[in-house]
Nucleic acid binder design. Sequence first.
DNA 1: ATTATTTTTTAGTGTTGGCTAAAATCCTAT
DNA 2: ATAGGATTTTAGCCAACACTAAAAAATAAT
Lengths: 220, 220
Amino acid sequence: MIKLTYAEENYLKAIYELTEAGKKSTSTNDISAWMKIKPASVSDMLRKLGEKTVIDYRKYYGVHMTEEGKKLALRIIRKHRLWEVFLVEKLKFSWDEVAEVADELEHVQSPTLIQRLDEYLGFPKFDPHGDPIPDEFGDVRSRPRIALNEIELNGSGQIVAVKDSSAAFLRYLDKVGAYIGARIKVLEKVEFDGSIEILVDNKKTIFMSKDVAGNILVMQ
Amino acid sequence: MIKLTYAEENYLKAIYELTEAGKKSTSTNDISAWMKIKPASVSDMLRKLGEKTVIDYRKYYGVHMTEEGKKLALRIIRKHRLWEVFLVEKLKFSWDEVAEVADELEHVQSPTLIQRLDEYLGFPKFDPHGDPIPDEFGDVRSRPRIALNEIELNGSGQIVAVKDSSAAFLRYLDKVGAYIGARIKVLEKVEFDGSIEILVDNKKTIFMSKDVAGNILVMQ
DNA sequence: ATTATTTTTTAGTGTTGGCTAAAATCCTAT
DNA sequence: ATAGGATTTTAGCCAACACTAAAAAATAAT
Ligand SMILES: [Mn+2]
Ligand SMILES: [Mn+2]
Ligand SMILES: [Mn+2]
Ligand SMILES: [Mn+2]
């Protein structure tokens, strides 16, 4: 049975998130930038994670996750997202406050704890940012979703997730009135800069930049 | 503001618990035995904690807590006990399963988290083992309590806490039917070995050794 | 096909927190 | 008062994980 330290768990989760976000290989510099740890330190850790067979590491050529690594990463992500649900649903945290705390809670070692927590929360399928919660076997049921800026004019759908979970972005969404679950319709698409106007819940119109729209995920 | 590492927090909590349990000074060997860490390592850590002014450390003469140290220790203990309540009340852990998990959760750094948890739990005053939960200012309202083996013959009272929180002891109490809140009366005291017979809730009689009775705390 | 630039790794250092073995100090019994 | 034993500290070592500076490899530009 592979045992990971606190730091190793953080690396593995980061690598998983970077590789899932499109490309299947991730570079040392990507990980360094994402985790805000110097490339030299990353190199060293990649060697160690390679030895533990949770990643596939070829010097100078980035890393891939192994099957074992994916399973472990999904276990950490499961814990992270369940704790996020707990913080929002039970402790009344707002969705921009939970990431930091969940980044600590995700490392608590107790299979019973996480199983009971899941049960207590009613087996939620998505976290407060709309990200799917893997089940205890690491299976993820991900919904097909598309960035809001790619919806055609007059197209409609429902906001189901955000790409960027930074507090700044989430607070901005709160301010303009965009939220997970909102039904939206694209009223206008500005050619010039890609900004768009949307109708939320048939009530309110919101104008947003292409950058903001690109970080909102919609299910049609 | 004094910042403590995970390990330092564990030491400080251990020292607090040992000093509160009677004597005001605690030896290196006591801490070593309690924490299962070699005396040499303890010495080293005591020097560091002394430099951080959370303990009063005179080489070869044990340690005392400083006021600052007591405040920090109580903050950790508060977190530990609140998490224990959460695990038992909300996640249906039994009282012998919570210590290990709470020993990890107590280190999560988030004042907001612990304040919201307290609120969510309804501001509990005691943990599942009957130990008082310090308030956010570190104030502890401790009830006067006495070991069960020191109650006189025919004396009565209510079980309010246990001294020993080991899983083995707690499961034994479950088995014989002793629990926090139970009303008891001492029916017999055996001179020879100090063992006693008690009546629980005017229903059931339990026979127990002096050792067991000594680890049960009663309020009269 | 070289050279220049970027990326990545290696080498060496520091901090934290554990260990064993040896030295220092304290305490107790004579 | 001192010797013996127990306790505690110091010295030296190691693993984990971060860093900077320098070397090596890969990639881009000429
Ligand atoms: Mn984390
Ligand atoms: Mn999330
Ligand atoms: Mn702990
Ligand atoms: Mn307790």
